[in-house]
Computed example of a mutant assay.
Amino acid sequence: MMSKLTDRQVTIKLDGLTLNGNLSVPANALGIVIFSHGSGSSRLSPRNNYVAQMLQEKGLATLLFDLLTEVEDRLFQNRFNIDLLTMRLIDVTQWVQHQKETKDLPIGYFGASTGAASALRAAAFYGEDIKAVVSRGGRPDLALDDLSRVTAPTLFVVGGWDKVVIELNEKAFEKLQCERKLEIIPHATHLFEEAGKLAKVANLSAEWFADHMQIQKEEQNVQRSN
């Protein structure tokens, strides 16, 4: 049974602009996972909300937010501006680190499609402050120059029928120097729309985050007891 969940809409103010988000925090959360959406998607993405619900059931807090304002999103090129999206994710991570209910939680990133590139680049920026990363059908190849600096345990999940993206993930996978895993889900396309496939993604992600966040929590408790 999932522990009591605090769920609220948040407004994240950054340098003269405001981003909307949904923050969900279970009691005694293991950590928080910040979602970095793919091009043209938002905090309302049904696939990412499905994954977020599974993470919450594992005792993980989640933050789904709009990486772009409504005005920015009207300019199609912004959806593929990895530099902009990475800086936005870095700034929002700092916001999470200063909120009362999340400031002490280990942080992870879940990146979907092009959002995986900004998640990995932000993870490289923050180093050991980021405890785990998951890429769903991602484009980690768009962050090749930063991958060797990622220290967080990183999981790539790709559909078995998504041949081009498999090749791009394999290329990026070789650049990682951290703990890493590439999981190919048979008979699944890019969006994992086939029956049961998105559930498989969500379960793999929840286990990856929970396992690594639990390790971090235990280390924190040991440090406090000393």
Rank of each mutant, 00 (worst) to 15 (best):
L142Y: 11
I82L: 10
A61P: 08
P153V: 02
A172H: 00
L204G: 05
S113V: 08
G137I: 00
R8C: 08
G127Q: 07
P106F: 02
N81T: 05
N22P: 04
K13F: 08
A122H: 00
D104C: 05
W208A: 00
V165H: 06
L19T: 02
V92M: 06
G137E: 07
L84D: 10
E219T: 13
D83G: 14
V164H: 14
T86N: 06
L198P: 02
S41G: 10
I166V: 12
C178H: 03
I215M: 12
L182F: 10
E179D: 15
F156E: 04
L105G: 00
P140Q: 03
L63R: 02
G137N: 04
T6R: 11
G16P: 08
G21N: 07
L144D: 07
L17R: 14
K4I: 12
V51H: 00
F110I: 08
E207C: 06
L75S: 15
R47H: 05
D146N: 10
V133N: 10
V71H: 13
Y126G: 01
N20A: 05
I107G: 02
S225W: 11
L14H: 09
Q53I: 03
L23M: 10
I166M: 10
E179H: 12
G127V: 05
T11M: 13
G159F: 02
L60D: 05
T86W: 01
I34T: 02
L68M: 12
K58C: 01
R79A: 13
K4N: 15
K181M: 15
L144T: 08
R136S: 09
R43G: 03
K13Q: 15
I184A: 08
F65P: 01
G40Y: 03
Q94Y: 14
V10F: 06
L67I: 12
L19N: 10
Q223K: 12
N203W: 09
D66L: 03
K100C: 09
K171T: 14
M54L: 13
R224Q: 14
T154S: 13
A29E: 11
V71L: 09
K4Q: 14
R149V: 12
V96C: 11
N169M: 04
M213H: 05
L17K: 13
T114E: 11
Q177P: 06
A195N: 14
S113C: 10
G159Q: 04
